[in-house]
Amino acid sequence: MLGRLIKYEWKNLWKVESILAGIMAAFALMEAVMLQTPMFANLFLDNKEMPDVLEGLSITSMIFGAIFLALLIIGVLYGSMIFLGVRFYRSMYCDEGYLTHTLPVTKKELLGAKLITGMLWQIIMNVVAALSIAAIFTSITALSLRNGMDMTEVADEYTEIYTDLVDLDAGVLFHGTVTTLLTGLFEPFISISLIYGAITLAQLLKKNRGFMGIVFYFLINFVIRFVLTIFKGLGYITLLPLLDEMDSYSEYMNRSLFSSYDMRLILYLGVAIALVVISHYIIEQKLNLQ
């Protein structure tokens, strides 16, 4: 039955989610294509012959375009999460819940189908967002190649940017990369569990359950961030005695920072798992549709 639940959950979500993903991809593609037009492409040429006014206009447009795209991507990612949350609330705890909870399926299957479908959409949205950003970089790379650079030079440019961004020794870099990958892997589960968990927790209340679901979501995040801030501070203090053994002050800062990233992942993952368990308990033992 889990497969069937996922099928119908998917059917109920795919249209809106696809539209959101489509908007993000379409604007990114449009931006990538626009960068190839003479107005912007000439900016990347060494021997550009543009009037100052036009150059200024082009740069301003490019900056605004980049800001707009960044805001759009963030907006779409949040929009997708909000839509998933609203659908979860309506299908589980509003009128639609009268059908959902009378289907001959276990509560584990019910919650599992919602989590799996939500996570899938989170992954798809993240991939589309990454591809949208990649489209911009590809367009810039194409301009660089048109400007006479070869691929090796372009690769060197990107490596330089990356090295500037992460000025780390090999051990710390490896640690940071592993933590970042794990965070990326668990992020869809964490974000969906937090949303669904907060909405489900609010079902224990007598009134304003929908609104209180939103309040609980922000409250849970606030508490986690508060605890993380304390741990971050403790991390800096704990590593302080080792400062002499480190190569540089930036290594100390980076190690401390990555320790806090580890803690962030562990804490969020722990809370997400706890919320899934609590949600299952509430649906199984405390269900009270109004």
Binding site: N12, K15, R90, S91, D95, E96, G97, Y98, L99, T102
Partner: peptide, 11 residues
């Protein structure tokens, strides 16, 4: 079961 409300997804 027929509840006292519409329980179908409008879309």
């Amino acid at each position: 079961y027929l509840p006292d409300r519409t329980y179908l997804y409008d879309n």
